[in-house]
């Protein structure tokens, strides 16, 4: 695995850190993500495992982590990019890895990150959602629950005859 990482460093000129559990991580600029993934796909990273977005609200950034897997060399590579939280736009990779389309749809819905060039950014899981994207740190689900789901409960009054009659 270490040999492969040094070889990869030489070929692509990327700064890859080895980590435990067959993993390595790599940080690139937002603009270079398409080029990096194209290079890595040529090197044999054929499986797009997942795409994660992390909301670092204190630093006002979203971190996108692209997880790639090399089957022969057994290397799990995490490609990380930072994007601005106020203007979250990044170029799509859904034409490089087809399945990335679904993951980008999910990140768009849950974090509001826009993927330029993705043809299918229609709502994925939520329906008629009007609030801020729910997975953002500033969305408070407990307050939302209090507002939406707590109403005057009249069920006892409605079902009263039943209890009186049979109990």
């Amino acid at each position: 695995m270490s040999d492969f990482i040094t070889r990869l460093k030489n070929i692509t000129g990327l700064n890859i850190h080895k980590e435990k559990l067959y993993q390595a991580s790599l940080k690139v600029d937002k603009e270079k993500i398409r080029k990096t993934l194209l290079d890595l796909k040529k090197e044999g990273f054929l499986q797009f495992t997942t795409l994660t977005c992390i909301d670092w609200i204190e630093e006002k950034t979203f971190q996108l982590v692209y997880h790639l897997w090399h089957r022969e060399e057994k290397l799990h590579l995490k490609v990380k990019i930072d994007i601005d939280r106020d203007a979250p736009i990044v170029e799509t990779v859904s034409d490089i890895y087809i399945v990335a389309q679904t993951y980008e749809r999910e990140v768009k819905e849950m974090f509001g990150v826009d993927f330029k060039g993705n043809k299918r950014l229609i709502p994925f899981i939520l329906e008629d959602w009007n609030e801020i994207p729910p997975m953002r740190r500033d969305f408070n689900t407990r307050e939302y629950v209090k507002d939406m789901y707590e109403t005057e409960d009249r069920t006892e009054e409605i079902f009263k005859p039943r209890w009186k009659k049979y109990d």
Partner: peptide
Amino acid sequence: DVYVKVESTKGEYGYYVVSDGSEKPRR
């Protein structure tokens, strides 16, 4: 942060856990 995976009956099942050093997971 760490990504762990196992082979489930449906395919690769993975967890990506990010910690920021507090009592609660970051993501």
